[in-house]
Each structure stands twice: as structure tokens, then as C-alpha cells.
């Protein structure tokens, strides 16, 4: 004989506090991201391979005194794109397909809590990426300008915000298979030609004119400015802000939950 469940016996106590709900969701999404093998390859392995590749080949020669100093800011920008755009976009797309977004939005977490939880997870994974890339880069002889760290980290967060907004916009409006294709393709295209790891001056003439207006180019270039020269270029900040606000508003408007 099974014993009855203690349902409704206790006075209903309501939802857990908002702060706890969001932290829980952020933790859950972070663990899910880290446990996903494909996401780890995209978030950690490929950026590290790119870092080593740029350090041992003469691709960046002539742009400054040290290959690794020029390479690392772009790799950090690539990390933000991996996690916030491709990784988070694909995960959200499939969560939408499987009804996870709908189910969780019926719990006390709600839609807002769900999105904030995802943003927290992106930030948490980004912190891990920055730590790992910095350690490997230091071993390769990276010497960033100390005054570059504060603006650099702020720009990374802003870049992650822009890529999160873009990822959510894609994931919320097309089928998950299309999200997979679009975000992976853009990762490769923007990674190679978007001014993110390869500075604009080393790109084909046509790309040079465009990349400053792309989130990839503005994040890569502004991080190089910060870590190489300790400067912040306002135009890039404005471009990144626009890439956050416009796709963010579009996602709020057109995101489909089912």
C-alpha cells in the first residue's frame, strides 16, 4: 500500500524569493552549458586553438611587437560570441522546441526569471572562459596593459549583451534547426571575416569597411584598443550599444515562446 502524498496539508507558502529563483536558474543553465560537450568545444577548445594558431603562425606579424598581445583580445571577443550567441542561441532554440520555456514560465520562475537566468549563465561561462584564456595566454607570454582590464571587462560584458540579444532574437523566431545553422555559420563567418580575431587591416578591402559596424568587429577592435593601448573608443561602444538595444527590442517584440 502506498502512503498518500502530504499535499495541501501545509499552508501554502508561495514562491521562493525572486533573487533565489533567478540565481537557481542561472546556476542550472550554467551547469547545463558546461556539461554539454559541443558547447565546451565551441566555448573553450576552438578559441584556445585559435589563440595558439595565431601565436605560432605569422598571420598577425607587422601589427605590433607581440603576436600574442594582438591575438588575445580577439580571442576573448570570440569567447563572448561563442557563449552568448551560438551556444546560448542553440540551447534556447531547442528549449523552445521541447516546451521547456513554456513549462518553466508556468512555474514561479516566469519568463523574466528565465531570461535573466540565461544571461547569468552566459556571464558565468564567460568568466570561466576569461580565466582559462588568460592563464593560457600568460603562458604564451601575454602582457596586457594593466589599465586595459577595467574597460576590457566592461566591453566584454557589453559585447556579451549584444550577442545574447542577437542569439535570443534568432532562437525565438526561427526553428531550432535553423538557429543551429544560422548561429554556427555566423560564428565561422564573423570569426574569420568579422574583424573579431583578425584585425580589420588584415581583412579584404570590402570587409574592412563593414566590420566596424558589426558587433564582432566593434568588440574585437575595442578590446584590442583596451588591452594593447589602454584606450576606449567611444564609436565602438555606441555600435555595441545599438547591437544590444535594437535586437533586444526586436526579441522582446517577436520572441515566440512556443
Amino acid at each position: 500500500m502506498t502512503s498518500p502524498l502530504p499535499v495541501l496539508e501545509t499552508k501554502h507558502a508561495g514562491p521562493a524569493p525572486l533573487f533565489r529563483r533567478i540565481l537557481l536558474q542561472g546556476r542550472y543553465e550554467t551547469i547545463t552549458m558546461i556539461r554539454n560537450g559541443e558547447q565546451l568545444i565551441l566555448a573553450i577548445i576552438l578559441p584556445l586553438l585559435a589563440l595558439v594558431g595565431l601565436t605560432v603562425t605569422p598571420l598577425l606579424d607587422g601589427l605590433g611587437s607581440s603576436r600574442v598581445d594582438i591575438a588575445v583580445p580577439g580571442i576573448l571577443a570570440l569567447c563572448a560570441m561563442s557563449t552568448a550567441f551560438t551556444g546560448q542561441g542553440i540551447a534556447t532554440g531547442f528549449d523552445r522546441r521541447y516546451g521547456v520555456l513554456r513549462f518553466l514560465s508556468t512555474t514561479p520562475l516566469g519568463r523574466t526569471g528565465l531570461i535573466v537566468g540565461k544571461i547569468l549563465a552566459v556571464l558565468a561561462v564567460l568568466v570561466l572562459q576569461v580565466l582559462i584564456v588568460s592563464v593560457v595566454a600568460a603562458l604564451l607570454g601575454w602582457h596586457p596593459r594593466p589599465e586595459g582590464w577595467l574597460p576590457g571587462l566592461c566591453l566584454l560584458i557589453l559585447g556579451a549583451a549584444a550577442f545574447t540579444a542577437l542569439g535570443l532574437l534568432v532562437a525565438g523566431t526561427v526553428r531550432p534547426e535553423a538557429t543551429l545553422a544560422i548561429t554556427n555559420l555566423l560564428w565561422i563567418l564573423l570569426g574569420a571575416l568579422g574583424g573579431i580575431v583578425v584585425p580589420a587591416e588584415r581583412l579584404p578591402a570590402l570587409a574592412q569597411n563593414i566590420v566596424h559596424f558589426l558587433p564582432s568587429g566593434s568588440l574585437g577592435q575595442s578590446l584590442r584598443d583596451a588591452f594593447l593601448h589602454g584606450t576606449v573608443s567611444l564609436p565602438y561602444v555606441v555600435v555595441l550599444l545599438l547591437w544590444t538595444i535594437i535586437p533586444g527590442a526586436a526579441a522582446v517584440r517577436w520572441f515566440k515562446w512556443n
Binding site: Y98, F103, L104, T106, T107
Partner: peptide, 16 residues
Amino acid sequence: RSRVGVMLQDGGLPPS
């Protein structure tokens, strides 16, 4: 929402 339980037709559980 804390007083209402929902079981969706397609489950809504993350596959992983």
C-alpha cells in the same frame, strides 16, 4: 504561479 501546477502536452522537460 506558485499555486498552480501545469503538465504540458509535450512535457516541457529539457532532454539533457
